[in-house]
Design a protein around this nucleic acid. Structure first.
Length: 597
RNA sequence: GCCCCUGUAGUUCAAUGGAUAGAACGGAAGUUUCCUAAACUUUAAAUUCGAGUUCGAUUCUCGACAGGGGUACCA
């Protein structure tokens, strides 16, 4: 039982004894006392004023006295503005530190075979272009959420649905066929996904030329868009693809394999992975079958041109296309199929889709459609929706060439980290492989932390320069703090200081130390809350607070020169536990922390 | 047009309905050269506006205003 729970139940019995009323512990609101007010934890008294039928001040006094008299961990209390500030006995903190110190997996719950299964879908790329900054946010969030849920005792299955078919792929294929001269990743020395992406852009350019040409011949823009030869050819190619045309399928497989090789490299660099990969080309037929079943059962309907639709006006939404008039399937079709297949494959308790907020409507519709089709889990799907990433220069626009490529960005971050380290002269004497390793860790942590520290739901601005700063709320700053602590611990070991023993409970501790212990002690609650709210940001900001506090603490005390052996031991154990929590917390964000840097 | 989301210091981000709205970067002033780095201390600076609910509202409700997204036989 932690200190909050102890206080809560003590308040419950206080209310019972003093006012003869039964309340539950969740009625007791406890928070950390503000730093400039004396006390450690604060109990809100307002909720009890109605029960006590006394003045707020008197109620505070009553409950405070009861707590002090009937528990063994309250030293004293004071009252400010109807807030009951409790002062916890110092020995209690020492006990806490000993408990934390003994627990190597502090803060996490391990899953067992009976734990429920959560499937988390993230990344979900299209195979017609390389990954960009927006995908990076998706991948980082997906991976981090998976780690957080694991730490909360879920069995987690990370999955990726690869959108490997559709009109967009045909555009790249067609452009390559028409304008490509047989170019391959080998012959052009270009990463496969970039090469295929290049032809997607070429398609778009040529298509626009054709549109302008037709407009100049007197067609409206809308007509031109529909009748340009290139788009007609692409549509034809998609029909052939769905008809299993051999030549088209072979080209498709060839180009997709290039892309997969490229993606694999990017994922590896980012440090994300998957337990099970689904391909849209394997699931869209199931989706089509479901749509046809829906049509037979008159859940959906057919228009004159043979296209199939769902009427959602009764749910306050629009009509939604499910199959095109030429019989080919759309995004929604495959998502229905994929969902069904997944629930057949695994005993899923919770299905989470990490997909950008521009898809909010899509997932709202998906849940309704699955529900209408009779899947009882349809309405349980969770769309973890996140905001877009912008740059200091403004929005990313593919047309204007301001899209930030994922590979370029990662390389740039690592380069900057290397250069910064060189300038500071801190990696003198390290081998080049060590330098590479550290540059990679620091560069990636800058990127990852900067993105994950922001509330996922909000749009954000990514500033590469600011992210890699070694001060402030950044990944490198936290890594630096960790490395510094490790350095002190190494030196302690060199001096043969044994700091693993239990700390003397009679030791006096000061406010800064107390505050640090409180912060460390909070870690399990933070992990739990982050799991409930799917918020890596919560963990990120917490670790930063801890690192910042620790740096100030570090500045005030010369730990290794401490004369008092008890105090030295205590401070080393405290440092060690701060490092432990930083490492675990950063692990939940998918960020490595170096032993030295 | 209709639907959804977001509005917090100069900037980037915080704040289970709680106390004087916190940090960081940048700005200003000062101290310092320290076990891992220009660090530390002090300081100026914000809840878009208007109602409502509440003992108490950045937070909940309604209405303006602003920004973003969706509303495609694109994914």
């Amino acid at each position: 039982m932690n200190i909050n729970e102890k206080i809560s139940s003590a308040v419950v019995s206080a209310v019972k004894t003093l006012y003869n009323q039964n309340i539950t512990t969740d009625k007791v609101q406890i928070q950390k006392t503000k730093r400039d007010i004396e006390g450690d934890l604060t109990v809100m008294i307002f909720p009890f004023v109605k029960i006590s039928k006394k003045s707020p001040e008197q109620t505070c006094e009553d409950i405070g006295n009861f707590l002090k008299g009937n528990t063994d961990f309250i030293e004293n209390f004071n009252i400010v503005n109807v807030f009951l500030n409790l002062i916890i006995k110092k020995s209690y903190y020492i006990d806490l530190l000993n408990i934390i110190n003994a627990d190597t997996d502090f803060g996490t719950v391990k899953a067992n075979e009976n734990s429920p299964l959560m499937m988390i879908e993230y990344s979900s790329p299209n195979t017609n272009k390389p990954l960009h900054l927006g995908h990076i946010r998706n991948n980082l969030l997906g991976y981090s959420i998976a780690e957080i849920q694991k730490a909360n005792g879920w069995k987690v299955l990370k999955t990726n649905i690869v959108n490997d078919r559709g009109i967009h792929i045909c555009k790249s294929m067609l452009a390559w066929q028409l304008f490509g001269n047989g170019e391959t990743p080998q012959s052009s020395d270009e990463k496969g996904d970039h090469l295929v992406g290049k032809y997607y852009v070429i398609f778009d350019q040529k298509y626009k030329e054709q549109i302008n040409d037709l407009i100049s011949k007197g067609l409206t823009e809308e007509e031109a868009k529909k009748t340009a030869p290139l788009i007609l050819q692409a549509q034809e190619m998609l029909v052939k693809w769905e008809d299993n045309n051999k030549e088209i399928r072979e080209l498709w497989q060839k180009m997709n394999s290039w892309v997969y090789e490229g993606f694999e490299q990017t994922y590896k660099k980012l440090g994300v992975d998957f337990d099970k990969i689904y391909y849209e080309s394997d699931t869209y037929l199931t989706g089509k079958q479901e749509v046809e079943r829906g049509l037979e059962q008159e859940i959906f309907y057919k228009k004159d041109d043979n296209s199939i639709w769902a009427d959602l006006t009764a749910d306050g939404l629009d009509e939604k296309l499910l199959l095109r008039s030429d019989g080919t399937s759309v995004y929604m079709t495959q998502d229905i199929g994929t969902a069904k297949i997944r629930y057949n494959d695994f005993p899923i308790k919770k299905m989470v889709y990490v997909v950008g907020n521009e898809q909010n409507y899509h997932f709202q519709v998906l849940a309704i459609l699955l529900d209408k089709l009779g899947f009882e889990w349809g309405k349980d799907l969770v769309h973890f929706s996140y905001g877009m990433v912008e740059l200091p220069e403004g929005k990313m626009k593919s047309r204007e060439g301001t899209v930030v490529d994922a590979d370029d960005l990662i390389d740039e971050m690592i380069d900057t980290a290397r250069q910064t380290a060189l300038e500071l002269g801190k990696i003198d004497g390290l081998s080049s492989t060590e330098i590479d390793r550290i540059a990679q860790m620091v560069g990636l942590s800058a990127l990852k932390y900067f993105i994950l520290k922001v509330d996922p739901r909000k749009n954000m601005t990514f500033n590469p320069k600011e992210s890699i700063d070694f001060n402030g709320n950044t990944g490198p700053f936290i890594q630096y703090t960790h490395a510094r602590i490790k350095s002190v611990l190494r030196k302690a070991k060199e001096q043969n200081i044994d700091f693993q023993n239990n700390i003397n409970p009679l030791l006096e501790i000061n406010d800064k130390e107390k505050y640090l212990i409180q912060l460390v002690w909070d870690f399990p609650n933070i992990v739990k809350e982050a799991g409930q709210t799917f918020s890596p940001a919560l963990i990120a900001n917490y670790i930063y607070d801890l690192a910042k506090e620790f740096n100030q603490f570090y500045h005030d005390f010369s730990i290794l020169n401490e004369k008092d052996d008890y105090l030295k031991t205590f401070r080393l154990v405290l440092s060690q536990n701060v490092a432990k929590v930083i490492k675990q917390g950063m692990g939940l964000l998918g960020i490595e922390v170096p032993e030295r840097m």
